[in-house]
Amino acid sequence: MPNIQRSPPLNSSMKSSSRSESDLSTPTTSASCFTKNDTNITTRSKRLRMETCSPNASTSFASNTGDLRMDLLNMLSNWKEDQDRRLNEWKSSLDDTLSKLVSEVTHLKNECREMRKTNAEIEKGMEFINNIQEETSTKIKKIENYQKETTNTINKMESQIKNIQFHTRDSTIEIRNIPISNNEKFDNLLSILSTIGKTVEMTIDSRDIRDIYRLPGKPGVLRPIVAEFTCVNSRNELLTRVRKFNKEKLVPEKLNTQVIGLPGAKKPIYIEEHLGPAQRKLMFQTRQFAKKHNYSCWHSNARILLRMDASGKPIIIDSEKCLSDLEKKS
């Protein structure tokens, strides 16, 4: 260990030289600044502090300190009152806002409850409507199927009626544009038919005719004459001879009222098969279509036929749908 040297002991000269008395007002103490305790440790004693303030200054300072303390207390009291007032106002405002919120939330809950009830009723209504719709769809399908079956049945019946009408009219002809005479009777009409037969070089006897009559209609309208032959061959022979006669003649010389000796203005005479009401309507529509699209139109053996040109294949028209299909293709 290094050698540790102790501080040398203080002698009288050192004690006197280290002492300072210039700052002391009264030399009342003779104690040295440094002392040595029993353990040979040198310590420094504290210097006594003298009061520099007078009694009046102390009183004035205490008074000022009390006033400042009161001011601070007043400021704190005022600040506390202001904060309490603000807190109360904020609390009152918050209470009002919370009260409004509670009221609005309650109102919203009631509305939601009503909406849930309404939605439940709507769902029930929708379910009821869906059930009705399903039932209606099922009924509509049944009706559609029934309609298809009915349509097929009607088409079959119409076809059968056409066949029946054809067989009942297969020996019947229709003569148009013959003027109506006064007191027209069976013999008058039979005479006109016989004259037409002579004109086309065919003998028609009363025994060949089952019945002959003029169709009913509105007054003033030139109604056609219907003649029923006793056999189909006689009727077909007359139609063939009329077509041949018209084909060999010019337009002014074709079969007309003057050729058979009827009085009045000359009018062309048309002799055709006698068609039923439905076939007559379809024949009229077919003629309109033929004029519009430059087709040839005629009917034979109760069948209505169309042809584009002489070399084309005849088209059988048995319903309005055939004309509609041709219209779409044109």
Rank of each mutant, 00 (worst) to 15 (best):
F128V: 05
T39L: 14
W298H: 08
N294C: 09
F166R: 12
W90G: 10
R235D: 01
K156H: 08
Q279D: 03
G220D: 02
D325H: 07
D211W: 00
E134Q: 15
D211N: 08
L73F: 07
D23I: 14
H299N: 10
S25F: 11
P277H: 14
G261Y: 07
R6H: 14
K46M: 09
H293L: 04
L76C: 08
K142W: 02
E158K: 13
M14E: 07
K91M: 07
C297P: 00
M115A: 13
L215A: 07
K109I: 13
I4R: 15
E327H: 14
N145M: 04
L76E: 06
E273Y: 02
S137A: 09
D325G: 03
I122P: 01
T203P: 01
K15M: 09
G264L: 05
N155R: 15
K117Y: 03
D71A: 14
P219R: 11
N130Q: 14
N294R: 13
I4H: 14
T286C: 12
I316F: 04
D205W: 11
R207Y: 02
K124D: 01
T65H: 04
F61A: 12
E320F: 09
E273L: 04
T39G: 05
G197S: 02
R303A: 09
I129E: 02
T28C: 09
N40K: 14
R307M: 09
I212T: 02
K91S: 13
T42D: 14
M1A: 12
T42Y: 11
E272H: 06
A310L: 07
A227S: 12
D318A: 11
K139I: 11
Q288G: 05
R49G: 07
K156I: 07
E228G: 01
D71S: 14
R69P: 01
E149W: 01
K291C: 10
E174C: 15
I196F: 02
C231I: 09
T151G: 03
G261Q: 08
G312S: 15
T59A: 12
R69C: 10
R85Y: 01
N110H: 09
G261F: 09
N78L: 08
I164S: 08
M70A: 13
N188H: 15
K148D: 06
S22C: 04
E273C: 06
K162Y: 01
P268S: 12
P263Q: 12
T52D: 04
E114R: 15
F289P: 00
D211L: 03
S137L: 10
D325K: 05
G217C: 04
H167I: 07
K142F: 06
K281N: 05
E121R: 15
A302I: 01
R176D: 02
I140F: 03
G66H: 06
S7I: 15
N177L: 01
C112A: 13
S324P: 01
D170E: 05
E237R: 15
T39R: 15
S311D: 11
S296V: 07
I154P: 00
R44P: 00
T230C: 11
T172M: 08
L275N: 02
V221D: 03
I317L: 03
S324M: 12
Y146D: 13
A227Q: 02
F245I: 07
T257F: 05
P314Q: 08
E158Q: 12
T172C: 13
K328M: 10
D23Q: 09
G66Q: 10
P268R: 15
T28E: 03
K91V: 06
L282Q: 00
S63Y: 02
K244A: 15
K249C: 11
L250V: 05
L72T: 07
A120E: 06
I178L: 13
G276A: 13
